[in-house]
Amino acid sequence: MRDDLLDPRAVLLHESAPDRDAAIRRCGRALVEVGAVAEPYVEAMLDRERTISTYVGEEVAIPHGTAASKEDVKRDAICVVRFPGGVDWDGERVTLCVGIAAKGDGHVPLLAELAEILLDPDRARTLREATQVSQIMKELT
């Protein structure tokens, strides 16, 4: 696992958002702040979400950009943003977002791990209810 993929500064555990778009913007900003993407990527994340929801189950969504927006990705990175109060995601409740920026395949092992976690309800709950950055890092990397 590449250790620069998930910057601890991109793990935000106590966020709140009034709606889906605000939650996506928060994820996008986290990726901008760690230098993984350029600003326009955030709009691409919103565009992508309007086409097909990135909700993947177990109260988790994985917002990311479009194929065209890869030019705004500076390096493969993810962010983990938790919304303990929940966000209405086209009728689904989302409490955890894993925002993705990828140029290549560097993030694939991490997504594979996330899929494993989400298929195990107990591990999914642990991830959703994490209150320490170290717990998230331990589960995902």
């Binding site: 994985i62 479009t66 927006s69 993705i100 997504l111 594979a112 899929a115």
Partner: peptide, 17 residues
């Protein structure tokens, strides 16, 4: 998939397994 960086990657890895 469209971008090939998110959900489809997750599904592909699960299927592979």
């Amino acid at each position: 998939c469209d971008a090939g960086m998110g959900s489809s990657v997750m599904l592909a890895s699960t299927l592979k397994k």
